[in-house]
Simulated scan of single mutants.
Amino acid sequence: MKTVELQTYKKEAFVNITRSVREEVMKSGLRDGIVLVHSPHTTAGITITENADPDVCSDMIRALDALTPKISYDHAEGNSPAHLKTILVGNNVSVPVKDGELCLGIWQGIYFCEFDGPRNRQYTITPVSK
């Protein structure tokens, strides 16, 4: 398992982490299995989405904003919408690995989803053999 440090620079952003996941799988020597990518944060998630058009990520942020209304929340920190977005997106993905390669679609990328930044963050990459 490898922990990767990440500095985010916006309140909300999708950061493409596919390269670091691919590199860690290569370093691990994993040929066939899965790789688990996990965020240990309650206001940041991990997802797989299109990586060819950056408008997809900005569209996702706007759509998640629409799903998490600005209501009167009891949580005192003022970041309840960020918690809800993380619940909706999820905090981990698993990706099949075959012949040492991530089994992602041609347009797919793995993204760290910041919903309460900017912050110092981290995520873990865990290759698992079958």
Score class of each variant (00 low, 15 high):
residue 72 S to I: 11
residue 43 T to A: 10
residue 11 K to H: 09
residue 96 P to Q: 07
residue 115 F to H: 08
residue 29 G to C: 05
residue 111 Y to N: 02
residue 5 E to D: 12
residue 29 G to I: 01
residue 45 G to P: 09
residue 61 I to E: 04
residue 86 T to V: 06
residue 24 E to M: 01
residue 113 C to Q: 01
residue 47 T to M: 13
residue 22 R to F: 14
residue 47 T to I: 09
residue 37 V to P: 02
residue 26 M to L: 09
residue 25 V to M: 07
residue 72 S to Q: 09
residue 12 E to F: 10
residue 71 I to T: 11
residue 47 T to P: 02
residue 101 E to C: 04
residue 104 L to N: 06
residue 115 F to Q: 04
residue 48 I to H: 07
residue 5 E to H: 13
residue 58 S to C: 04
residue 130 K to Q: 06
residue 54 P to I: 11
residue 66 A to V: 11
residue 40 P to D: 05
residue 48 I to E: 06
residue 114 E to K: 04
residue 35 V to W: 10
residue 52 A to L: 11
residue 27 K to P: 01
residue 90 G to W: 10
residue 19 R to P: 01
residue 104 L to P: 10
residue 4 V to F: 05
residue 6 L to R: 02
residue 17 I to L: 03
residue 110 I to F: 05
residue 67 L to F: 15
residue 121 R to G: 00
residue 50 E to S: 08
residue 76 A to P: 09
residue 61 I to R: 04
residue 12 E to T: 14
residue 78 G to F: 14
residue 23 E to A: 10
residue 123 Y to G: 02
residue 46 I to R: 02
residue 2 K to M: 12
residue 5 E to A: 13
residue 97 V to R: 03
residue 86 T to G: 12
residue 41 H to N: 06
residue 128 V to H: 11
residue 38 H to D: 06
residue 22 R to Q: 15
residue 23 E to P: 01
residue 128 V to C: 13
residue 5 E to Y: 13
residue 8 T to F: 00
residue 4 V to I: 15
